[in-house]
Every structure is written in structure tokens, then in C-alpha cells.
Nucleic acid binder design. Sequence first.
DNA 1: GCCCAGGTATAAA
DNA 2: TTTATACATGGG
Length: 272
Amino acid sequence: MEYRITDRGAELTACDAFDLKNTFECGQCFRWDEAPDGSYSAVVRGRRVRLFRDGDIVVIEGAGEKDFDRLWKEYFDLDTDYEQLRCEMTELCPELSAAASRLNGIRILSQEPWEALCSFIISQNNNIPRIKGIVSRLCESFGEDIGGVYSFPPAQVLAEYEPEQLAPLRAGFRARYIIDAARKVSSGETDLEKMKTAPIEECRRELMKITGVGAKVAECTLLYGLHRMEAFPVDVWMKKALASDFAGVDPARLGRTAGIAQQYIFHYTRNT
DNA sequence: GCCCAGGTATAAA
DNA sequence: TTTATACATGGG
């Protein structure tokens, strides 16, 4: 991805492979909000960040050279050519052509591992608006105030609390899952960093030792939090899709395009 | 009021 | 090993 640093921030030039709406509203993340002007804001790794499109340029507001190289390039996965990935995907699985041609510019974000794990524990048997509400209250209650917005509370912080103390979140039965995850991650019993490179089957097994983490949450953590692109989260939507419109799609054949394929199917199914 | 949401733990067959 | 049900809460 070509870019330049200006007084506005980091400007991604000729950026047609980055659709803000498709990327931030495809269900992979819960902290990005659209403003009335069409820009999107979030808190990422304890920093407030705002993105907007200006013609064929995407601006990462306020990002300097240092931030860009150390943070945003990785977070937005800017070294990956998603057009190329999409071609590879349809080559491997032609059944995905329809979804791929209807949508464009979805990118898989590199969220923080703990934030992804915790967010997707909250996501189970829940709807996106309410998931966002619970995550938001989690940050306001236990995160750090960074000037009107709040960072995502580290596992080490939440590990000190009892499930009952999460009552203000109104997370319901998920409260004890969050605490169990926080304690396992905090103690090192669950080693998320190691999962960036460890064999994926081993990672799945380790994640599922956490109470409240089943196959779906483990897969989401691997894809969205650890950027394991071969992960393929299957939920109720995906089951329906794979049983009808996308019958014949085989995750095992998709290789590193499995994650993005899943995202296209999910988004396509929800919007048609 | 009713249905159900990017599921999982638990019990029963 | 597979199948049924409860789970907390609130958006639509």
C-alpha cells in the first residue's frame, strides 16, 4: 500500500482496496463507530484513531511516520494486497465469485489478541449492537480514561475482579467466562503471544480450555486477534450459507484465504 | 409480548 | 458420541 505522511496524518494513496464501511461493519470488530460525516473512530492499543476517505485517498488522522510504521501498517494489514488475496480466493473456490464481486475492500484487522478473545466471548448468543454496548461499558468501567474515551482493560486488570463485579456491564452469563479468560491469560496459562506462530490445532485446543470458549470463539480469536488467516469461524449464519448459497465451499482448500472468504460469506449473507 | 442474536456448558440419550 | 436445553439481556 502506497502512502505519504502529511499534516493531516498518514494518507493511503490510490486506496480502492480499503472500504471503511465493509471493513468496520462486517462483524470482525466492535469498537469502531461511524460519525455523521462518514468517518470512523475507535480506540486501538490505547490510542484514539479516526479514519476518513477523501476521494481515492484514505486518511489515518494524526498518524506520523513512527506511528504508521509501528502500529497502523500492522493493524490495518497494509502490506497485504487484498485484491491479490481476493483473486487467489476465487481461484481456489469459484463458488465465492458472486460474493467477491458484490463486495470489495474488506480487510482483516490485526486486533489485540486479548481484546479479540474477550470481545468474542461476549459475542456468543448475542447481537452486534448489544455486543458493542457491553464492550463499551467494559472499557468505561475498567479501562483507562484517555480523554473522554477509554482503552480496553488488560487481562491483568480484569483478573483481579469477581464475576459479580462485572454486573454494570450487563453481560449476563458471560461475566464468569470473561473472568476465567482474564485469569488464564493473566497467569500465562493461556499464552496468546505464542499463538501467533504455534501450530493452529494446538492453539485451538489451548483456547478451548477457557470456560466459555468453544470452536467459534477460538476461531474468531485466531483470525481477528492473532491474524491467523487460515482460521475459518463458523457460526449460525455461516452454517446456513454453507448449506445453501455456498455449498461446495471447503475451508480446507482455501489456505490463507480462508479468513477473508469467511468474511465475504458472512457479509454477503447478512446483506442479501 | 415475542423472537432471537457472529455459542457454549451441561445433562441426558 | 450425538442431541436437547438453559443461559442473561435487550434490540427489533
